[in-house]
Amino acid sequence: MFTHQRELRIEWGDCDPADIVFYPRYFAFFDASTGALFEAMGCSLRDVRRQANQVGFPMVDTRSQFYKPSKYGDIVLIESQISEVGHASFGIQHRLFNDGKLAVECSEKRVWAGLNEQGELKAQAIPDSVRKRMLA
């Protein structure tokens, strides 16, 4: 399944008074990493939204485990991988490494979504062109 890596420098605003990353910031890192993963697949959110009535891929579940803190100034590596592909949903696994050691794991489940005729947000089948990229 498709995998992407990106480096990130921990900024002062990411940290709490103990000088470690405030845990909600990790979810922002992983959300941005999902966007970077799709960009690397050649399928940006802008491209998705250009398709008829497509909104994007909202998250319906996320879970994390924290093993090692990261601090201001640390350079971390986030590895993101498509972990499963269903009809209208897919999973992503993120692993954040600090100094070569696993610091945080996160799993996401997202749904391919668009607007129906009534303008309501509904799950839709993942387009075949995107599915092929996810499975590459």
Rank of each mutant, 00 (worst) to 15 (best):
H87E: 13
V76E: 02
I78E: 11
D128I: 05
N98Y: 10
Q118V: 09
S83K: 09
I126Q: 10
K109T: 12
L115H: 10
G100M: 09
E108M: 13
N98P: 10
I75Q: 03
G73I: 06
H87R: 15
I78D: 04
I126Y: 12
K122G: 07
H94K: 03
G86C: 07
D99N: 13
F66N: 08
N98Q: 12
L121A: 04
A125F: 09
S80H: 07
R63A: 13
I78M: 12
D99Q: 15
M134I: 11
N98F: 03
S80Y: 07
Q81C: 14
S107E: 14
S129L: 12
Y67W: 08
D99I: 04
K71M: 11
I126R: 12
K71D: 04
S89H: 03
I75V: 05
Q93V: 10
R95S: 09
E84D: 11
Y67D: 03
S89R: 04
N116H: 09
A123Q: 01
E105D: 15
K122V: 15
E79I: 06
E120F: 10
R110Q: 06
V104R: 13
E105G: 14
A88K: 14
F97V: 00
Y72P: 02
D128H: 03
Q81N: 11
W112P: 00
H87A: 15
S70H: 04
Y67F: 15
G91M: 03
H87T: 15
Q93E: 13
E117K: 10
W112Y: 01
V85R: 05
K109F: 02
L96K: 02
R110H: 04
G114A: 03
Q118D: 13
E79G: 04
R63M: 07
K101A: 13
H94S: 03
V111E: 00
G73Y: 06
V76K: 08
A123R: 00
Q118I: 07
P127C: 11
Y67I: 02
S129W: 14
L102R: 01
K122M: 08
K132G: 01
F90P: 00
Q93L: 12
K101E: 14
K101S: 13
K122I: 14
L96V: 01
V76A: 05
S64A: 15
